[in-house]
Nucleic acid binder design. Structure first.
Lengths: 351, 351
DNA sequence: ATGAAAGCGCTAACAC
DNA sequence: GTGTTAGCGCTTTCAT
């Protein structure tokens, strides 16, 4: 294998500008104590030669690697990719994360880690040792994994726990699940609905409960009954189908259903169709997440928009600020979600 | 900022095992000239200490970086991510690329590069200088960009051009677009269709023509007319709508349409619905790519499956083999596609 | 405000 | 088969 060397190094720039290595280093790192004339001269050489510092060398000399690691659960991610059901969580992560990293001259590295295995720690430690990232972004269910959190804390690597509100090391960053659920509920109440049911998600994710809480609190604030209107699901299509059928079979069935994710909403839509219940004239339906599929169902689905890109973008900012030693929030940061009204919700039919 | 150092280095391992650095290096790189007893001893220390070599240090010493760079067109990718229409090209790339990289101890880094700008070269050069990847995977339309190809050739970095059949440096790797188009055409012919129309894609991608070629050759092989049955599109929904309407308005309209991608197939489905033409009883429809949405339309779409994951996986293999100096194909490598029959195709209704 | 020297973790080249 | 030496490109530390 041919030994590949850096084409243009800091030495070339120093020689070209007639200064020491150190001065060039100061310029590329935007450090003080460089006269602006000197700075311009060095910058001119950099531009002329097309010099770009090597990440490897920078990391080696004990400074930053300009790499931010974002990790996702391996099994779940591969299952989503293989099923091809349109889940675009990873895409939205990259959209928010890569673009924000690029703004600051960082790079996002996306990796898969197996939460459920007993060697999570070894796996993550290896990735960190190999890559030496300047920060790590955790997503559920990693965000609340004590082994992972402790490891990162010990290694003193800035990290963000997305989807976690718990105390502890790192920064907690959550989407406003409760607020989004309240908003969806209010939308239906405004349309005249009174019996609004809710299909919950898997207990493995704390956000499932937050979504339920939002629905409950809004219902109660309006003095509406929720008895029997909450059906347990686990984010799978099948669980959504079971839950929806139970709700539709009630003696006094709901006129609207909120499902905790799109797959379960899809199942509810199909369950309604199977029973001859028209959506939206007889049943209004709101889903969570706003993944691509909600645009292609008939009717299209009114949905809560989970701000994944925005959240990851904020996570990157937090890490970069932490690295710079800037002031940081102690409370969990909350990212507002969105809401998109489509065809699956309509005014409650009287009678 | 606290200076973070590698927790466990090759020195620690060497000290623990009571050998020289070089011997440890030989073991981790699986080099010859190490007695198996020695190898076991060193490996034991590595496992005990949980040592993982630093990518940065390895790269610095002039050897591999164990990084493979996969680049996509920036504008198109961001547009897809923002539109949230379910395009899972990136996900499939990651699925094939990351898993294959992991098998060999490599890592896939996904990056966006702006093909259309006049500073493509500078942009890519900067990424390469920063990351020092061991190989690069190009996707359309980068694969046929002479600036990019020349840059990589000069830098002597192994690279794969996905979706390109043209001669030149690097390895060409294509999905069997022509074969897939023939297969789709044959499927319809087998169902009794004679007038089978084709909506083509954008000329910016060579594969558009290959797909047209496959349809043409299969039609001609069966002695079927194609006059007036080819409509030009550019992969957008709108272009598909225009093309489909033109075909449906023909004096002797086709009984089947093949669209060069899913978005245009979707447009054709909608155009047929608007004209009261039932799919599949009056019109059969086949789409290309098999992105998630084909599972959610009514009826679901019969589709050609573009083997993106498999192709990227093969690209990674080619790069790793090239690095090892192993024998490599001179001809373009062709990856077979798949075909999934769903509800949008049916036997041709006589009369 | 600028420069010189030392060293990061690892491998290539060469010795023995 | 194993050890020693030098150096990769950069930043840190210390000197001027």
């Amino acid at each position: 294998m041919a030994r590949r060397r850096q084409a243009v190094t800091i030495k070339h720039v120093a020689a070209d500008a007639g200064v020491s290595l150190q001065t060039v280093s100061r310029v590329i790192n935007d450090e003080p104590n460089v006269r602006s004339a000197m700075k311009r001269r060095v910058q001119a050489s950099i531009d002329k030669l097309g010099y770009v510092p090597s990440i490897a060398a920078r990391r080696m000399s004990g400074s930053r690697s300009y790499l931010i690691l974002a990790i996702n659960d391996r099994d779940r991610t591969i299952a989503d990719w293989t099923a091809r059901q349109g889940t675009d969580w990873v895409d939205q992560m990259l959209l928010g994360g890569m673009l924000k990293c690029a703004e600051y001259g960082y790079r996002l590295i996306f990796e898969l880690v197996d939460t459920h295995s007993d060697h999570v720690e070894r796996e993550l430690r290896a990735t960190i040792a190999a890559l030496q990232p300047d920060g790590v972004i955790l997503t559920p269910p990693h965000s609340d994994n004590p082994l992972i959190v402790k490891l990162l804390e010990r290694q003193r690597i800035p990290f963000v726990r997305i989807g976690s509100r718990s105390e502890g090391a790192g920064f907690a960053l959550v989407m406003d699940d409760e607020g989004m659920a309240r908003r969806a509920t209010r939308h239906l109440i405004d349309l005249g609905h009174r019996r609004i049911a809710f299909i919950s998600g898997s207990d493995e994710y704390p956000l499932s409960q937050w979504r339920v809480d939002g629905w409950e609190s809004e219902m109660q604030a309006q003095g509406l009954e929720i008895g029997g209107l909450m059906a347990r699901g686990d984010f799978t299509y099948e669980s959504g189908a079971v839950a929806a059928r139970r709700l539709l079979d009630l003696p006094d069935p709901p006129s609207a259903i909120i499902a905790s994710n799109d797959q379960m909403a899809l199942a509810a839509l199909e369950a309604a169709r199977a029973q001859g219940v028209d959506v939206p004239s007889r049943l209004s339906l709101v889903s969570f997440d706003n993944t691509p599929i909600v645009r292609f169902t008939r009717p299209t689905l009114t949905a809560v928009d989970q701000p994944v890109a925005e959240t990851v973008s904020r996570a990157v900012e937090l890490i970069i600020k932490a690295q710079r030693g800037e002031g940081l929030p102690l409370q969990p940061v909350v990212v507002e979600g969105g809401f998109v009204a489509r065809e699956s919700t309509a005014a409650h039919a009287q009678g």
